[in-house]
Design a binder for these strands. Structure first.
Lengths: 404, 404
DNA sequence: GCGATTAGTTGACTGGATAAACATATTGCT
DNA sequence: AGCAATATGTTTATCCAGTCAACTAATCGC
């Protein structure tokens, strides 16, 4: 029989405390404004007594900090607001990509404590060199963080290709020219952090987008979305209420190699008709009659000027994107699409075509008059680095007991 | 910030007991042979004392039963084996499809206690009539079960189309000609069961396939698989270690309307080039020059005889299926494909083409020499009915405390 | 200044797990 | 047959984390 995943561990009293610490800290970290112990008790349906015990434990550990009492205006003893501690613990988000690498340190509140980005062209460069460079950058960022008395919880690395979760190897990074690279061992050795993870760039960017949405835009994306990270290659991160969908190995989201026109253009990957060949930045630039290295901003500029070949190329890209996304939505029932990276800049010229294809091709939309939300990304620059840092700080948020 | 789903409830002492009852019963229900209290304690990493307490509670509730002592051959006091109680509690699995409806009662051990199938042609028939008929069939099955002193835990209904989880409405069932039908209210009212759920036929069949694999075939599918339910329409159930993937509303798995050739044949759904138009049973029959109502067995027969148009049609179907599945695997990183329903019969003639397309088009397979497993289904007839019954009995398995 | 109100703390109690000793039932050796 | 060895299941004392209810603390409004 046995349908659900079985290897569930039995719980003991300690697990109770551990779980509840997590619940309380998630409430604290997830709230835009500070909460009091009483408020936490109410939200978690605990008694004030236990809420106090839990919060005190978190405060003693330096994970949570009490703030000065604020004037409530109401009767009664004033509450002591608590919030995630600022600057005491940071996650290190690292990224290697084709045209830059960098590291960013983010604290439990999501604030950037330190960062360093190094633009360069890494395509075809030897992994050891590039990773060595990254380790160096990383050390300077860590030094900056420790100067500010922040403890480094761990690091996570974003890579542009399918990579085994959580420790690699990186299976393939076509645009770097890397195949089967063990990224974790050299970096882990160089950094000596208690926690090290590797994940796909698009998945991590999706996570950052989710975080950015949570605090700013109201949650049109609360029930999930697919974040499309468009550059030379195209990846995607699929976000559900539970987290980012990874699949069996962590390779999920390779939308760039979904066949849009099965007998169409030959792709670098060896297949034919892949989405990348129609909606990748180079494909669009080529279709627009521009140089292969034209930046997305320049393409957008050209489109804004009304340049017909550019508009035509963007139209073809939008249709191709719409076809691939319609397949994704039919398969996975994803309620919204977010266009990120280069595609965020090009969104004004492609999102209508994407939406039209979704309306036509998604079975569940077709019957109703409804249409799928297609939105540009709002997360700030280099979201994958932020996302990488977030999966580190997240490990504290979901299980603070591990850090006491 | 807040990346993980937050509305986690705080745990109290009672939750501990509840959780551990679930863990223990999952171990009991999931084990092919009976376990002793001591063995359960070891597997769940509990003390024998608590294992005893938990098992006793389950035994008192009639969920678990002690068996006669078996001779172990080893020294020591002989163990008292316990197993999920047979025939005391059943889940009712219901299904409405184009050419039959039926109900099947399954006990906690997965044994069929009673069933009744009524073949008929329901396409275009009014929902009220068909559901009325189903309610009648269901009552006879329930009567048979209660005659055997089994308590009915609840019922679940399988429908051939996207349906909101867990209570409907059924959004669309093209082959029944139904749109936006509230299936739960009339059936729920007629049956008066404590638990009622609705889900897609393919998702439920996938669940049954998983159960069938667990006990028989070794788990080549342990890390997940996509079950393709091929008939006139084509649906899919995506199984991960955690369960069956549903998406935001429960509509996931509509692979039949993934665009394989975006400018290809017009589909009943209003779009163009849907998989169904190439790999659906009618499409294959038409391509083979056979009547639209030719059964899959007859098509397979024809192919076995070496009939060239049939083989050509099956080749086209296999390629189309492979293209769609390659998209699914690229997006969701699914490690195996199971061909079910009509496609199980046709598997010998399509699986090679499917595998070839996967090899060509799945990025993560392409770099390595590996290939994706493509297997025919092994679950016995009408798996969706079994799957429906299983999601009911599963609710006991995962949370027995709710049934004390 | 005093009641009303709300926040946080304290102490008795309870449920559920652990640990260790004990009772029970078998095998195997002499 | 008798006894040691072994493993299962049960009993008892203890501990831990949460509840409940009472208490203290700090503010507002009159």
């Amino acid at each position: 029989m046995a349908l659900t995943a079985e290897p569930q561990a039995a719980a003991r009293q300690a697990s109770l405390r551990r779980h509840n610490l997590g619940v309380v800290f998630q409430l604290i970290a997830g709230s835009p404004e500070p909460l009091s112990r009483a408020e936490l008790a109410a939200r978690a349906t605990l008694t004030r007594a236990t809420a106090t015990a839990l919060v005190d434990q978190l405060v003693r550990a330096g994970i949570v900090e009490e703030m000065d009492q604020r004037v409530s205006g109401r009767a009664g003893r004033p509450a002591i607001p608590v919030r995630a501690a600022r600057g005491t613990m940071v996650g290190l988000g690292l990224e290697v990509n084709v045209d830059y690498l960098g590291a960013r340190a983010i604290d439990l509140a999501g604030e950037v404590i330190a960062e360093r980005i190094e633009p360069d062209d890494f395509s075809g460069r030897a992994p050891e060199d590039v990773l060595g460079e990254l380790a160096r950058v990383c050390r300077t960022v860590r030094a900056a963080a420790t100067r500010r008395h922040a403890r480094v919880l761990g690091a996570a690395l974003a890579v542009p290709g399918p990579v085994d979760r959580p420790l690699g190897p990186l299976r393939l990074a076509p645009n770097l020219g890397w195949v089967d690279v063990d990224v974790a061992t050299p970096l882990g050795r160089a950094l000596r952090v208690p926690l090290f993870k590797v994940d796909n760039e698009a998945s991590l960017a999706a996570r950052a987008e989710l975080a950015a949405r949570d605090s700013s835009t109201a949650s049109a994306l609360a029930k999930g979305f697919i974040y499309v990270s468009g550059g030379i290659g195209i990846g995607a991160g699929i976000v559900e209420p539970g987290g980012v969908y990874g699949g069996a190995h962590g390779w999920a989201g390779e939308i760039g190699h979904v066949a849009v026109y099965p007998n169409g253009r030959v792709c670098r990957c060896g297949s034919k008709g892949c989405l990348e060949q129609y909606a990748g930045r180079r494909a669009i630039a080529a279709g627009a009659g521009l140089g292969a290295d034209t930046a997305a901003a320049a393409i957008a500029q050209r489109a804004g000027d009304g340049h017909p070949p550019t508009l035509a190329a963007l139209h073809r890209a939008g249709v191709a994107l719409g076809i691939a996304l319609a397949g994704a939505v039919n398969l996975m029932d994803i309620p919204a699409v977010v266009l990120g990276a280069d595609l965020a800049l090009l969104a004004p010229y492609v999102s209508d075509d994407v939406a039209a294809q979704l309306r036509q091709r998604v079975l569940a939309l077709h019957w109703s008059g409804r249409s799928e939300a297609v939105l540009p990304a709002v997360a700030p620059a280099l979201p994958a680095m932020t996302g990488a840092a977030l999966i580190v700080t997240d490990s504290v948020v979901s299980d603070p007991a591990a850090y006491l």
